[in-house]
Design a protein around this nucleic acid. Structure first.
Length: 490
RNA sequence: GGGGAUAUCGUCUAGCGGUUAGGACGAGGGAUUUUCAGUCCUUAAGCCGGGGUUCGAUUCCCCGUAUCCCUACCA
C-alpha cells in the first residue's frame, strides 16, 4: 500500500518550529516512499483566544518557504476535500451516531462545575484523576429527557474497563497501556464540534492515512484512538511518535526561549535549506556515516523512520547559525545579493525602491561580506560602513582610532595615499595594492602598520574584507573623501 | 497523586555484546592572511547509579534516580 501521510496543524497562531519539523518529516517520508502528503486544518477549537484565522496564511507561507509543498491541502483542494475540519462536521456526527447506537459512546450531561468539583476531590484524595463515568450508565429515558429539556451535553468514548492496549509505535516499539486507567475521552463538544481525538481519527480514516507522525506529547492519547479504531472496525494506521524539541533549559521549546515562531526565522534571514537541514537533524540522523550537511535531495534519499531518535532534542541556535552560514557561503552571490537588498532597504541604507546606481553598488559590496554572514539580517551591520556617511570622527570606532591613528607615520601616510590614489590611472585592487606597498617602502614601516591605519581611515573600523577590494568597492570618490576628512581633522 | 516516554562529551548525535566509544556545533591551541570571518590542523570533553544475563556489557533485562510529556467540552 502506498504511503499516505498528513500534517494537521491548528490555526492557533504562527507556526511553531516543532510542528514544522513534523511537517518536514511528513514531506520527507512521502517523498522517500513515493507516497502522498496532505495538509489538513484542525480548526475545531472555536474559542476566540485560540482560534486565529490569520495564522492559516502563516502556515501556508511557512511551508512554501521551506519548500515542503503537500500534494493536496485547502489551498489547492484535492480528492480528500474539504481539508478544513470545520467543514466536515457531518462526517463526525455520523460516526458519533454509530458509536452511540453501538454503545461505545454516550452522552454526558455533567456540568463544568460538577467536573471541577470532581477533579478537586480527586486531587484532595490523591486518587487517579479522570471522569468518574457518572453518565455512562444513565438510563436511556433520563438521557432523552435531559436532551429534550435542552441540557447541553458532550459525547464521551466508553473505554474498556479492563484489558490492555498494545501500541506498536514505529519509533518506540511496543508500548502497553491498561485500559482501566484510560479516561472516557470527550469526542464531541457541547458546541457540536468534535475534539481532536474524534476529528483526527475520522479524517485519517476517511483520507486513507497510512502513517501518523506526531509529537511525543500525543503518546498518551494513542490508546483512546486505537480503541476508537477498534470499535469502528477500522484498521489503525502506523503511529510514529516523534521526540519533542526542547529549549536550552530542557523545557518544551516555547516563546520564552526566544524564537519559536517560524516568522522570526524568516525575518532573521535563515535560508530554507539550512532550516530544513537543521530541523531534520533534531531527532533524526543518517546512521550510516552520520553526515550532517545534507542537501534536500540527499535527505529525501536517506530519510526513514528508523533513523528517528527517541529522546528529546534541545534546539541549539548556535548550530543553526553555523549551518546557515555554511549555506550562505555556498550560495551563488547573485542569490545572496537578491536576498540581502530588502534588508538594506528596510534599514534605510538603500532608497525604497533602490535606484539603479544603488543596486549596482550593492552588487559590488554584498559579495565582499557574504562569507562573513551567518544570517541575512547581519548584512546590515556588515555593509553599513559602505553605505553610511562617514565623516571623521563621526562614525569611527574609538578603539580603532586610538590604536591606529596614533602611529608616528599617520600623516605622511595619508598624504601619500591621497596623492597616489588620485593619480591612479585605473581604480583597481591590484593597482591600489602596489601603490600602498610602494608607500610602505618609502615610509620604511611594516606593511601591517600601513594597512591597518588605512582601513580605519577608509572604513572607520578594523574588521572587514581585504583592504584593497574594500577600497576598490568603495570607489575613488568615497575613499578620497574619507581620507581627506581624517587628514584634516586628525 | 496517576500514567507514559527518555537517559552516550555543555549541545546534536553514531554505536544495534568484544571499538583506542566515532562525527558535528560550541570551547581551547596552532597554521594561513593586511584585520575579522573563513579554511586547514589540533586539544580537552561522554556511556546517570545499582543489580542481574553473559566468557564479555555503552549495548539485553530489572530496580532506583533524573528529566520531559500527558492527566481540559486545547490541540
Amino acid at each position: 500500500m502506498p504511503v499516505k501521510v498528513r500534517f494537521a496543524p491548528s490555526p492557533t497562531g504562527s507556526p511553531h518550529v516543532g510542528n514544522l519539523r513534523t511537517a518536514i518529516y511528513d514531506w520527507l517520508m512521502a517523498k522517500h516512499e513515493g507516497g502522498e502528503f496532505l495538509v489538513r486544518l484542525e480548526d475545531t477549537d472555536r474559542s476566540p483566544d485560540r482560534y486565529a484565522p490569520e495564522s492559516i496564511a502563516d502556515i501556508e507561507e511557512s511551508m512554501r518557504y521551506l519548500g515542503i509543498l503537500p500534494d493536496s491541502w485547502w489551498v489547492s483542494g484535492g480528492a480528500d476535500s474539504p481539508y478544513v475540519q470545520s467543514e466536515r462536521l457531518p462526517r463526525y456526527q455520523e460516526v458519533i451516531d454509530e458509536l452511540i447506537t453501538k454503545g461505545h459512546a454516550y452522552k454526558c450531561f455533567c456540568t463544568k462545575e460538577r467536573l471541577e468539583q470532581m477533579r478537586a476531590r480527586q486531587q484532595e484524595l490523591g486518587t487517579p484523576s479522570g471522569y468518574d463515568r457518572r453518565c455512562r450508565n444513565l438510563p436511556p429515558e433520563d438521557s432523552a429527557r435531559y436532551e429534550a429539556e435542552g441540557l447541553p451535553y458532550v459525547v464521551r468514548l466508553a473505554m474498556p474497563l479492563e484489558g490492555t492496549c498494545l501500541l506498536k509505535d514505529a519509533v518506540r516499539g511496543e508500548i502497553k497501556y491498561e485500559y482501566r486507567l484510560q479516561d472516557d475521552q470527550v469526542l464531541l463538544k457541547s458546541d457540536g464540534f468534535p475534539t481532536y481525538f474524534l476529528a483526527a481519527t475520522v479524517d485519517d480514516r476517511l483520507m486513507g492515512i497510512t502513517h501518523i507522525l506526531r509529537g511525543e506529547e500525543w503518546l498518551g492519547s494513542a490508546p483512546k484512538m486505537i480503541h476508537l479504531y477498534a470499535v469502528m472496525g477500522w484498521e489503525p494506521p502506523v503511529f510514529a511518535h516523534l521526540p519533542v524539541i526542547l529549549g536550552a533549559d530542557k523545557k518544551k521549546l516555547s516563546k520564552r526561549h526566544g524564537a519559536t515562531n517560524f516568522r522570526w526565522f524568516i525575518e532573521q534571514g535563515y535560508l530554507p535549506e539550512a532550516l530544513v537541514n537543521f530541523l531534520v537533524l533534531l531527532g533524526w540522523s543518517t546512521g550510516e556515516d552520520n553526515r550532517e550537511l545534507l542537501t534536500v535531495n540527499e535527505i529525501v534519499e536517506r530519510f526513514t523512520l528508523q533513523g528517528v531518535t527517541e529522546h528529546p532534542a534541545i534546539f541549539d541556535y548556535e548550530k543553526l547559525k553555523w549551518m546557515n552560514g555554511q549555506y550562505i557561503r555556498k550560495s551563488p552571490p547573485g542569490r545572496i545579493i537578491g536576498l540581502c537588498i530588502p534588508y538594506l532597504v528596510k534599514a534605510g541604507l538603500l532608497s525604497n525602491p533602490p535606484t539603479t546606481e544603488e543596486i549596482a553598488y550593492a552588487r559590488r559590496i554584498i559579495p565582499l561580506e557574504q562569507e562573513r554572514m551567518k544570517t541575512l539580517s547581519e548584512v546590515v551591520d556588515l555593509v553599513g560602513v559602505f553605505f553610511q556617511k562617514l565623516d571623521y570622527p563621526e562614525g569611527y570606532d574609538e578603539k580603532a582610532v586610538a590604536k591606529w591613528f596614533g602611529v608616528a607615520h599617520i600623516k605622511p601616510l595619508l598624504e601619500k595615499e591621497i596623492a597616489a590614489f588620485e593619480a591612479l590611472p585605473e581604480w583597481s585592487a591590484a593597482l591600489l595594492d602596489s601603490a600602498v606597498r610602494a608607500i610602505t617602502e618609502e615610509l620604511g614601516v611594516k606593511f601591517a602598520e600601513v594597512v591597518h591605519p588605512t582601513r580605519v581611515a577608509t572604513t572607520g573600523r578594523t574588521v572587514g574584507p581585504g583592504l584593497f577590494e574594500t577600497i576598490e568597492a568603495l570607489g575613488k570618490e568615497r575613499t578620497l573623501e574619507r581620507l581627506r576628512a581624517v587628514l584634516t581633522r586628525i
